[in-house]
Simulated scan of single mutants.
Amino acid sequence: MFPCPRVFALLVSFFSTYSLFFYGSPALASNFEITPVLLELSVSRTAGVIRIVNKDDHPVSLQVRAFEWAQQDNEDQLNSTEALVISPPMFKIDPGAAQVIRVISRKPAIINAELAYRLLIDEIPEADQNAVNFKFRISMPVFLQPDKATSPKINWQIDAGNKQTISVENLGTRRAKLLNISIGLPSGRRLSPKAAANPYALAGAKRRYEFDYDAELKPGLPVKIYAQAESGPIEVETTIMP
């Protein structure tokens, strides 16, 4: 979790979070702040801004690119897109200085479900023959909402096959952010699957959460599924499928 919902400093010990993904060597990471950590646009508010502050003692050159974000076969897929306009797409920030980035949606005025994107923010290495250059990447979510977005509608299923899994299908028109997923057995025991790379189930997407051990889930056993969503705690009664 972030210590502040709007600002988070990317420190040398920081590797990844649920909203921002950071790729690179944490021992060599630059130190800066991004506000906000998640950008929400809509068909009636098609522009937003991101502010980056360089907290380090040297200039940082960055490049920002937009990608469509989809989830297929339980994998996140990013495809280059021109649906978002980034201005400026490349820049250098001096120590202690800030850069404001404008993000504008080109999508049509009417959409039926929330659209998901990610901004990849890359450091551009300086050409220095006397030093080992380092590059890092941050992946930031951007969502474009319809004017009448509904709440997520989650269909849960637990399978007791060779790979015992909890399956999540988001039948709604808005993303679901699911944390701390677990199964409650009649004995009172709690079982937790492996954590996913990110907690989002996008609108219309399916996700699977596998157990990294034999959970001994028996078909027909009545259980409860627990999770934490943005709207609050979730508790669902279901039966384990074969």
Rank of each mutant, 00 (worst) to 15 (best):
T150P: 01
I104D: 05
F2V: 03
A205T: 12
V223Y: 00
Q77W: 09
Q71K: 12
V236F: 15
L171N: 14
R6I: 11
S42I: 02
F211H: 01
V53C: 10
P125E: 14
D214A: 07
P3D: 14
F14R: 05
L62S: 08
L38V: 14
I121R: 12
W156K: 09
I93E: 03
R118N: 03
A196Q: 13
S13W: 15
I86Q: 09
Y209F: 08
I86K: 01
W69N: 02
A70M: 11
V53I: 09
D76Y: 06
V236S: 03
D94H: 06
V168T: 12
E114D: 09
I166W: 00
H58F: 13
R51A: 14
P222K: 02
F136Y: 03
F8M: 15
T239D: 03
I225S: 02
I86N: 03
I181K: 04
M140N: 01
L217V: 01
E123C: 12
E40Q: 10
A131M: 14
D56N: 15
A201F: 06
K224F: 11
A201I: 13
R51M: 01
R208M: 11
L38Y: 11
E68K: 13
Y23W: 09
I166Q: 00
D56Q: 11
L28F: 14
S13N: 14
D212K: 09
A195H: 02
F22R: 07
Q99H: 09
A109D: 10
E75M: 10
T35G: 07
I124N: 06
P89E: 08
C4P: 02
S139F: 03
A98Y: 09
P186E: 02
N112F: 07
Q145F: 08
G204Q: 01
E126N: 05
L84C: 00
E82D: 13
F211V: 05
V12S: 12
R65Y: 03
F22M: 14
T239R: 10
V37R: 13
A27W: 11
G184K: 10
S187C: 02
W69R: 13
S19E: 15
R65G: 01
E33R: 13
T239S: 13
P146E: 02
F21M: 13
P89D: 13
Q129T: 10
V12N: 12
Y117Q: 06
P3R: 08
R189M: 10
